[in-house]
Amino acid sequence: MPPVTNPTLRQRRLGAELRKLRERAGFTVTQAAAHLGVNQGRVSMIETGRSPLSADRVAAMASAYDCVDERLIAALSAMTGRRTRGWWEEYREHLPAALVDLAELEHHATGLRVALAMHIPALLQTTDHARALFRAVVPPMRQHEIEHRLTHRIKRQGVLHRECAPQYSAIVHESALRMGFGGPEVASGQLKHLLEMGELPNVTVRVIPFGAAYYPSTGQSFDYVEGAVPQLDTVQLDTHHGGCGFLDAEAQLAKYRAVLEHMESCALDTTASRDFIENLRRDM
């Protein structure tokens, strides 16, 4: 199969995980190539996500690297093949690659956990709220850019409504709920939508009020995307330039899991959170 010129996040992640297996086995690229019967260049292309793989090749590499974690091997095998032609591919020429990759990442997620201090979670935003956010971006976006971002965001939200949708847990600080993007009518509609989304069996919304004893975060928004196995989890960080930063090192994942656990410990429970949002909406 010809090489991949622009590997997606998923393809790059598969290569990175195979590199981790090689390094844990103590193999150099040269040694790995000799064990696999390929040249060094092929190993390098595999590890950068530029060489399409079959499930059989992944199994052979795992065997060569003495990996006996069957769940991990099965999860990596499921990531093989060429780029999935999902709906997000139509945005590849219009949006930053990281935003397109994020949609693909969410599509394959087994669970989603988000924490935000100043914004409503993207997958829980109304169209009017999202449009107001995009209009406030600095420097200003052109109208067609806003529409591309808006339709992309709305299509991303479909992951919460599909059959076998992933469990979605959102922790939102009170400050995000009080931000009046789009004016009172839009803000009220957004709070109403949050309440409605919280009624879905796979969606949980919890609030950290100003009165909480502590807030265990720097204030940066992030998504914790759960993979088929914990090793394939990913943290997505929002950046000021509008892109997405992705973290997947073991220590990084452990850190953000701990942050989420601390935030959950100081958030209101789901019933109290719902009452809190309803009261805010009534007071508008």
Rank of each mutant, 00 (worst) to 15 (best):
T239D: 10
S44R: 12
V186N: 01
P166Q: 06
P3R: 13
V225N: 03
S273M: 03
W88L: 12
L112R: 07
H152D: 04
F210W: 15
Q231T: 07
S63Y: 11
I277Y: 04
F210I: 08
Q252C: 03
V138Q: 11
S188N: 13
D223N: 13
S77R: 14
Q220G: 13
G86T: 14
L116H: 15
L95D: 11
Y65W: 07
A34I: 06
E199C: 06
L280W: 07
A122N: 09
E47N: 06
T127H: 14
G243S: 11
G86M: 04
A75G: 10
M179N: 01
T127E: 14
A74M: 09
L177R: 03
R282I: 04
A170M: 10
E47M: 02
L247I: 04
R162Y: 06
E147L: 12
E185F: 03
Y168C: 06
A115W: 14
A98Y: 12
F276I: 01
F276N: 11
M118H: 15
L237R: 03
L53Y: 10
S265G: 02
R257I: 01
Y215M: 09
H119F: 13
T5S: 14
A115L: 13
V100A: 08
K155M: 02
A254Q: 02
L232P: 10
I146T: 00
I208N: 05
D56A: 15
P2W: 02
M1D: 05
Q157M: 05
R85K: 14
Y65P: 02
R83M: 13
L191K: 06
Y91T: 08
P3S: 11
P2R: 14
V4H: 03
E278I: 01
G15H: 12
M263K: 05
V58Q: 11
D66V: 10
A98C: 14
S44K: 11
V58A: 10
H240G: 00
L21F: 09
L232C: 02
F210D: 09
C164L: 11
P230V: 01
M284F: 06
M141V: 00
L232F: 11
R206D: 03
C266I: 13
A115V: 06
D128Q: 09
N279Y: 00
A249K: 15
D238G: 09
A115E: 07
V259D: 05
R135H: 12
G198Q: 04
V114C: 01
M118I: 08
S217R: 06
R42P: 00
G37Q: 08
R57I: 00
T110Y: 11
R42A: 08
R82H: 12
T126K: 08
S63A: 13
P209T: 03
F222W: 03
W87Y: 12
P230S: 07
V100F: 07
P121V: 01
L150I: 08
R131W: 07
A64R: 12
E174P: 14
M61Q: 11
R156E: 04
R135Q: 15
P209A: 00
L9C: 00
A55M: 01
H144W: 09
A258F: 08
A228C: 07
S221R: 05
V38A: 05
L268G: 03
